[in-house]
């Protein structure tokens, strides 16, 4: 299994309520698990714990069979990436996009050339001219494609997709989903897809779980239907 979550719970304050409770699931290579539920049901909390943004209060997470802990370091930090709902907050508003795109090269010591970056971004529909702009000068769809390209630069094996298309128009949504499918086929990646759109989950994911009041119901597999 690529990712295994066992008995994960989270409370934000020491005596506060459990936001998510006893969550367990597993995602294999090439699989997409959808966690679907209303606003406030705890979907994003699960995604953010997996991406190493918060520690879980209880439970364990395994990546390729190895237990991982907060904060994510080394192999785990590289292998798990996240795409947020609001692409505009994923980029520093004061930096030109070229500078934001150089950050993963610096952090993960990747060989950088401007031409190499432009060639890489071609499949995401981002051109050299876009890179000279600030985040506010791009559309939501363009920024989200750039955020996906940045996450994929370091070749992760697992992506948390936290409502990546809910703020986008339908054509931008279809373009992002199309790119995600292509990448998954090429690299056998695992995805955790968080959404409140049931029809979208059914179309895109291999299995679907309903999250209600912080508890996860049994997954429903498309292949079983």
């Amino acid at each position: 299994m690529l990712i295994e979550v066992q008995g994960m719970s989270k409370r934000y304050r020491p005596r506060g309520p459990l936001v998510v409770e006893e969550i367990s699931f597993a995602i294999d290579q090439g699989e997409t698990l959808a966690i679907f539920g209303d606003s406030g049901s705890g979907k994003s909390t699960i995604g953010q714990i997996l991406a190493g943004i918060y520690p879980a209060t209880a439970g364990e997470i395994r990546l390729d069979g190895q237990k991982i802990s907060y904060p994510l370091r080394g192999h785990a930090r590289r292998q798990i990436q996240i795409l947020f709902q609001h692409p505009e907050v994923a980029f520093n508003p004061r930096l030109r996009l070229i500078d934001s795109m150089r950050e993963p090269y610096r952090l993960f010591r990747l060989p950088y050339t401007r031409q190499g970056l432009c060639d890489y971004l071609e499949r995401y529909g981002i051109y050299e001219e876009h890179l000279e702009r600030f985040p506010a000068e791009l559309s939501g769809g363009e920024l989200q494609r750039l955020a996906l390209a940045r996450a994929m630069l370091i070749e992760p094996s697992f992506l948390v997709l936290d409502e990546p298309t809910s703020m986008l128009d339908v054509i931008s949504q279809a373009q992002i989903i199309h790119l995600l499918r292509e990448i998954q086929q090429e690299r056998q990646m695992g995805y955790l897809f968080i959404s409140h759109d049931r029809v979208l989950c059914e179309r895109f994911c291999t299995s679907i779980c309903l999250l209600k009041g912080g508890r996860l119901e049994d997954p429903w597999r498309k292949s079983d239907a």
């Binding site: 529909g125 559309s139 363009e142 494609r145 339908v170 054509i171 949504q173 279809a174 373009q175 989903i177 199309h178 759109d197 029809v199 979208l200 059914e202 179309r203 895109f204």
Partner: peptide, 15 residues
């Protein structure tokens, strides 16, 4: 055609 219920088809190229 890009609506999920119509198959999420990405028939338009990038702007």
């Amino acid at each position: 055609a890009a609506l999920p219920e119509h198959g999420l088809h990405a028939t338009m190229g990038f702007a």
